[in-house]
Design a protein around this nucleic acid. Structure first.
Lengths: 225, 225
DNA sequence: TAGATTGTTAATCGATTAACAATC
DNA sequence: TAGATTGTTAATCGATTAACAATC
């Protein structure tokens, strides 16, 4: 029932995925420009920092209802604010970490470095009973039985999986069963999920493995040339 | 001169980026199937684990010269081997880490978790002279002056940036200047790079920030429905 | 005004999907 | 053989780019 409503609203979100994925990149670039005290930028300048034509950037922005100053460009501050609001970055979202062993700890540590205002890890759990009570960063690892209650009381919307690959599916199912439909997955297992759930797999290995293809190519071409 | 050759060979690598990015995902799924002792799979089965139609998968594979058993499917072991070889995962690539403070440490720790056979971090540097000599994991942080020599002697092909945002560009330029054209960037700054360089920006923030859009959408739709 | 840049359309490009004969 | 799945083509879909009049 609740899922039906959500599914519907998800499908109705009208920004194409490719556009959506570019927006945080625009924001990064705008922040950089701000640090350089640049007040007005242009689609052309923005395009220097990413592999996208200026016309694409203009198109993205107009499609979102964001307009520049005709003949001038875009006000950096205004554009940044618009994008932040659109992406929901003016709010802060609570997240829960599942997995208190080394992967969990390093993932936590790594995310902490980024000091994002957008999300906060406010609770930690581990399916392994032996981990309960141990501390990870400043959080006490809780019994997974209390997951549902904690999600409610702490208004948690994002689940972070940092468990061994062999229980990733179980953990994902648990999160989804507890109405967490936004999942960040640090494990190397890609869980099967219903289509109203959004999972981001953050596995550096995935990136590096497509890199090595190019490495190999270049070596071959050097040898043969 | 050397750059010209490389540039050329990069452009001539004929696998489309979208296809290339799917290959490591196929490999993950194949490993999972192997763990379940499944010997023969099909494009249909593989498509269950990722948002791609079976015809796409067949097309990807034939385009790479990989053939299945007509009427039967694909031999899991054979397919895995073929993809690994194609991606250059039968080799091991040496990487250097730049940045020995907390971000560097947690990135290192995080990557260690993954125990990839594909790459190995064999040296660490920091532009900050005060960091020199400190240990990170089992590596001693070296003076960046020795970067060039170490790259040569240790046959390093991959550079990992884990420095504060404000020096990312400097570090990227340094790496490129030392003929490292494969860069993994853990900072939140997107450096400007020549087009023959491949940079993978691994910033969980990027992923999460496009997630919050959907979070916001659903909240709004719940309120209005 | 002259120069620069937006907003927008049309053309191009490439990726995905559906369908089915060929094959095991 | 019957059933299932590949390999491949054609159709569809969507994203990117180029071009330019309108605007500051």
């Amino acid at each position: 029932m609740a899922k039906d409503i959500i599914k519907q609203s998800y499908l109705s979100s009208d920004i194409p995925r490719v556009v959506l994925d570019r927006l945080p990149i625009y924001l990064r670039i705008l922040s950089q420009l701000q640090q350089e005290e640049i007040k007005i930028t242009s689609s052309k300048e923005l395009s220097l920092y990413m592999p996208v034509e200026s016309s694409q950037i203009r198109k993205d922005l107009t499609s979102l209802g964001i307009n520049g100053i005709n003949g001038k460009g875009y006000n950096v501050k205004v554009l940044k604010k618009s994008l932040q609001k659109l992406l929901g970055l003016d709010a802060s979202w609570n997240a829960v970490l599942i997995g208190g062993s080394t992967l969990g700890r390093s993932a936590m540590e790594f995310m902490r470095q980024k000091r994002s205002q957008t999300y906060r890890i406010v609770a930690a759990f581990d399916p392994n009973l032996r981990m309960i009570g141990k501390k990870i960063s400043n959080l006490k690892i809780q019994d997974i039985k209390d997951l549902q209650r904690t999600i409610k009381t702490r208004n948690i919307k994002i689940g972070i999986i940092a468990t061994p690959n062999n229980i990733t599916q179980f953990v994902a199912d648990t999160l989804i069963g507890n109405d967490l439909f936004y999942i960040i997955n640090f494990s190397s297992f890609t869980p099967k999920i219903p289509d109203y759930v959004i999972v981001k797999n953050l596995d550096p290995g995935l990136e590096i493995e497509s890199m090595t293809y190019h490495l190999r190519q270049r070596r071959l071409s050097k040898v043969t040339s």
